[in-house]
Simulated scan of single mutants.
Amino acid sequence: MSSAPAPESPDLVPLSKLPHFDARTMPVAAIDSHLPPIAPEQLAPQAIRARFLAPPLWEPESRIEPRFTDRQVAVASVLVPIVLREQPTVLLTERTTHLSTHSGQIAFPGGKRDDTDIDAVDTALREAHEEIGLERRFVEVVGQLPSFTTGTRFVITPVIGFVDPAARLSLNAHEVADAFEVPLQFLMTPAYHRHHALEFDGVRREWLSMPYMDGSTERFIWGATAAMLRNLYRFLAA
């Protein structure tokens, strides 16, 4: 899989609109080294398909963030694109810094539901095509996870899809600064899941981060994206 060149982003773009806050500098409260990783055989395509066809009894670890705003709730979907390489990877994006919400953050391709969208899957596939040029014919949708509500009032349905490595990407430079892949095994290993907490305006806010070194570049995965990946871990581990 290849993509059109995207502009480089600054090294330290603010990751939140909270004043004097940068998630990368927050202390680590705990690391989940005591939890087992998902075994490689459980991350094979046939195993993931089987899990969604016959889901276990489980509970998502995180469903809602404390709100940052009183804006109207927006229904949205993201595609969690698992690229079917010999060792599966997850395709992620880095949002451009001028966007009004979640600017500069690592995210799944996705966005708000349009009136013309049929369902959550339709939204996720449409947005993935608009943001990164991923054509629907290269995606096999295998399931969904429970919705996750962000502090910015987006109610997001994560749609899990297998992506053909032959797919070509074309990034929408207005929305996406970069696209990259992270090994699924890394993301499904809790020893790389770090817990953080901060009290702001009398509200305790807790979040996860999963920083990944992509060569010499740190891909700082945190917040809602990390929470949805953690729920995927809980689903596969159940």
Results as ranks from 00 to 15, higher is better:
Val28Met: 03
Asp117Leu: 01
Val182Glu: 06
Arg63Glu: 10
His193Leu: 13
Arg168Leu: 09
Leu57Tyr: 03
Ser103Leu: 07
Ser9Glu: 04
Thr157Glu: 06
Ser103Phe: 12
Ser147Tyr: 04
Thr89Pro: 00
Thr101Asn: 08
Asp164His: 05
Thr101Ser: 11
Leu57Ala: 11
Thr152Cys: 00
Pro10Gly: 14
Val13Ser: 09
Glu41Met: 03
Arg113Met: 09
Arg137Ile: 06
Asp22Glu: 09
Ser16Asp: 12
Val159Gln: 02
Gly215His: 04
Leu134Ala: 08
Thr89Arg: 01
Pro60Ala: 10
Gly133Met: 05
Glu130Arg: 12
Ser209Val: 07
Thr123Gln: 01
Thr116Gln: 03
Leu92His: 05
Arg168Tyr: 05
Glu218Thr: 15
Val28Gly: 06
Asp11Phe: 07
Ala226Tyr: 06
Thr149Asp: 03
Val73Gln: 10
Tyr192Asp: 11
Ile31Arg: 14
Ser16Ala: 14
Ser33Lys: 10
Ala47Gly: 08
Leu169Tyr: 05
Ile48Leu: 04
Gly143Cys: 01
Pro37Asp: 15
Leu232Gly: 05
Thr116Asp: 09
Ile64Phe: 05
Pro55Met: 05
Val203Leu: 02
Pro10Val: 13
Pro165Ala: 08
Leu91Gln: 07
Arg204Asp: 10
Glu131Leu: 11
Arg168Ala: 13
Ala226Asp: 02
Pro81Met: 06
Thr116Lys: 01
Ala23Glu: 08
Leu43Ile: 10
Phe68His: 12
Val159Tyr: 04
Pro40Trp: 09
Ala197His: 15
Arg71Ser: 15
Ala224Trp: 02
Thr123Val: 12
Glu206Leu: 03
Leu236Ala: 09
Pro56Trp: 05
Ile221Cys: 00
Val83Leu: 01
His20Lys: 04
Asn172Pro: 02
Pro36Ile: 15
Arg219Ile: 14
Gly110Phe: 00
Pro88Asp: 10
Thr217Met: 01
Ile132Tyr: 02
Leu15Glu: 06
Leu145Arg: 04
Leu187Arg: 04
Leu169Gly: 10
Thr96Phe: 01
Arg204Gln: 12
Trp58Gln: 03
Gly111Met: 03
Val13Ile: 15
Pro7Val: 12
Val139Asp: 01
